[in-house]
């Protein structure tokens, strides 16, 4: 067995509630379990996926949203994290890069992405 196969032995199973074809430009809501003291609740984080990287247990994706007062907030989630309740995709967009860092320099209407209609097969 080669190295990759051996490393996979301890991999977490993919979360069925996370789309496996998450792509940059997707507008998503991430429902993430947070611990507050001894209470646990689910927090929604809605924004644009600007980066998807890694594979297996090491895969992460970064969501950017504009919080109050126009402050940009980016949060990186491990794709296989058991603390992700689910990820809901609201829109897919036509993008020409793998990393949408240019959105950081754009505000308001300039930061929009063109909607992409997924093919039936997707």
């Amino acid at each position: 067995m080669n190295k990759a196969e051996l490393l996979k032995a301890f991999e977490a199973p993919p979360n069925p509630n996370v789309p496996q074809d998450l792509r940059p430009g997707d507008i998503v809501s991430v429902y993430f379990r947070v611990k507050e003291g001894d209470r646990e609740r689910v927090q929604e984080f809605r924004g644009t996926v600007i980066r998807v990287r890694g594979e297996g247990n090491n895969a992460t994706f970064t969501v950017r949203r504009i919080a109050s007062h126009g402050v940009g907030v980016e949060r990186t989630f491990p794709v296989r994290s058991p603390r992700i309740e689910k990820v809901v995709r609201h829109q897919q967009s036509k993008v020409r890069r793998a990393r949408l860092y240019y959105l950081r320099e754009r505000i308001g209407k300039h930061a929009r992405l063109k909607r992409r209609m997924p093919k039936q097969s997707e």
Binding site: L6, L7, A9, F10, R33, G56, N57, S81, R83
Partner: peptide
């Protein structure tokens, strides 16, 4: 030594491990 990766514990924390 096979290599390093990370695995998640019950709390959902990512633990760096060597396989």
């Amino acid at each position: 030594k096979v290599g390093m990766t990370q695995i998640f514990d019950e709390e959902g924390r990512a633990i760096p491990v060597t396989i």
